[in-house]
Design a protein around this nucleic acid. Structure first.
Lengths: 353, 353
DNA sequence: TATTTTTAGTGAAACGGTTCACTGAAACGG
DNA sequence: CCGTTTCAGTGAACCGTTTCACTAAAAATA
């Protein structure tokens, strides 16, 4: 095995042709070279165990066929499906992905700088929960760097953006309980407590509005008294569940269902309900939003709305590809994606049938 | 903002010097250039908003300052901490990481080919559960490509390898129950059922041996009758728990503790125990191995052994850096890492105090 | 002052591909 | 048979850096 990898020149020498011919053959440019020499070159390449140097190619073509995927919070279970969606689309087009994980504004800027230095052809930026200012995005835009953002609360119409329909999700999750015959439906939401993270608050507000929408349109009681703050955390969900139980025990008309605005809170709440001796879903039906792998393994498994995150990845990739191929779109694209309802045991749907 | 990014030549022209001088200044080569011109060059670079082209640099230096991290099963929650460990060490040395996820042999080979074409300076390969043949690793070795493998069952001494002490983990998890006063300790293991995935079987066997070790050294009854096959899955753990409960109900001397060889099985088993009306840990104390994020959120939270996976990443990175800096080590390195005991509620330790 | 050393800076050759402009020969059309 | 087109293939410039070998002037040394 050669220490130094073989180059086009080596092949050219071995096959007795010019380097440009070799290049044409190896890149499959048909009709430029006769079958005879073509075969010779291929044989020489095989013999020398040739492996094209992507760096040199990028240098010459002024393209890397690589896009940067920047994600906040690598820990978040949503990140894997996004990359899957992105990868699925980009691979077909011959692009590669390089991944960068960030956790705050500065590290995001660093990541962008780094990847620009690596000459990526474009970016996909996905925020899972953090809102970040958009100055540096405006900069990207000004520099004519192709990019798409997912789930980020920015001035509409400014960039190519993909969003999740949080309000619709809150509505669907609540409506599902209504459809199962529930009339008094509480909620554990992130709204009441202020959060430093803007984006989280926005989605909390929207999901909460969805809950209200559903109640209103069904003519159910407004439920104002049955809102509990969970702060989007396991602990918060746990405490909110305790409060809910306490209030329900003193109420002549306790809720029979609860919409919990995030999976983490739902898992905490499940523990609270369990400790209080409540049976789910018999005593209280539960729906939530977010479908991490373990949502199927709770007791009982959670009925939930899954973020269409694979699809978000696909759409982002397609938007980016279009830009790369046909130039910047005349006007920036806005996409709103629906959540998918996943029915498991916590809503009690199976009890009905 | 310039459409085309500025190059060294642009700066050289603007500052009225040669390009090599600019290169020296920008790379901080002290003492080669007078403070005056240095300042001029810096000013010019700032003005042109210069961003070095990493591709061109890699080309010239024949190094990319990038290493490839190849991981099977991106879904696995272990993957994030590995990359954290790797990143922590590599960043200090000025290296970047490019990530590739694989799921079978062919895709692993593809990933290696791809990254070699991208001219990465070295590899870290981490298997989380799949055993793959090593021919292509031997090839890497023959080509003098620096690499380190984590958690892979290969002929000892062949390559730089990092392993987890599965047997010690099984021993510790069981011993912890013994220390809490338990004498009859069952196990749910992956051993009895054959698995296609070799690696998984190996770790299953070792963890099982650890359980035996602990029982023997404590003079406890051997427990042969209390081994249940869980096949390393949620479903398997669930069924094994049912079998365990059934057998315990007919036994004059039922076990008071159980060591479950993987977190997934433990979560399934928890459900089985719950449905059977068993209280954990009062009726049965549980320990397991593996600490995914949700292990703290089960009911009750799991006492478990955490894989030192951040440390594995760090060690791998350091081994690789050494190779990169000082050349291939005279003999390949072998590292065995201990698991860390994380005490939560499922073992009942808190009840004792 | 004559000689050596240091300082400050330079031009050009890599690195490994791609691609443009070009050529000589063969094939073709009338 | 001549002019034109197609075919098969080539050399060299270029992409943006790094770095080697070199120089002219200044500084240090004797």
């Amino acid at each position: 095995m050669a220490r130094k990898p073989a180059t086009l020149r080596d092949i050219a020498k071995l096959a007795g042709v010019g380097v440009s011919t070799v290049s044409y053959v190896l890149n499959g440019d048909e009709g430029r070279v006769s079958p005879g020499t073509k075969e010779q070159i291929l044989a020489a390449a095989r013999e020398l165990n040739y492996r094209p140097n992507a760096i040199a190619r990028s240098m010459a073509k002024q393209k890397t066929a690589t896009i940067g995927l920047i994600i906040t919070e690598l820990q978040n279970p949503l990140f894997v499906p996004v990359t899957e969606g992105v990868e699925e689309v980009l691979r077909l087009e011959g692009y590669h992905i390089v991944l960068a994980s960030t956790y705050d504004l500065q590290s995001e800027i660093n990541a962008i700088e780094l990847l620009r230095a690596q000459q990526v052809d474009g970016f996909i930026l996905m925020s899972l929960s953090v809102h970040l200012p958009s100055d540096h995005l405006a900069q990207l835009d000004a520099d004519d760097v192709p990019f798409v953002v997912i789930n980020r609360d920015l001035e509409a119409g400014l960039f190519n953006q993909i969003h999740f329909d949080d309000r619709g999700a809150g509505r669907t999750a609540t409506q599902h309980l209504i459809d199962l015959g529930h009339r008094r439906i509480a909620t554990i939401s992130g709204v009441r407590e202020s959060t430093a993270e803007y984006d989280r608050r926005r989605s909390a507000i929207e999901r909460h509005q969805g809950w209200q929408d559903a109640l209103e349109s069904s003519g159910s009681p407004s439920g104002e008294d049955w809102v509990f703050a969970g702060n989007y955390t396991y602990e918060g969900g746990y405490r909110a569940a305790q409060q809910l139980v306490a209030q329900a025990r003193n109420s002549p008309q306790p809720p029979t269902g609860v919409f919990i605005a995030s999976d983490m809170m739902a898992i905490g709440a499940l523990r609270g309900f369990f400790e209080a001796g409540l049976r789910i879903p018999q005593d209280l039906a539960v729906t939530t939003i977010g479908d991490p792998p373990y949502a199927a393994y709770t007791i009982p498994p959670l009925t939930t709305l899954s973020l269409p995150v694979v699809e978000a990845g696909r759409v982002a990739a397609r938007l980016l590809i279009d830009w790369l191929k046909f130039g910047k779109p005349a006007q920036s694209q806005q996409v709103l994606l629906d959540f998918e309802l996943i029915i498991r045991a916590s809503c009690g749907a199976s009890l009905k049938t």
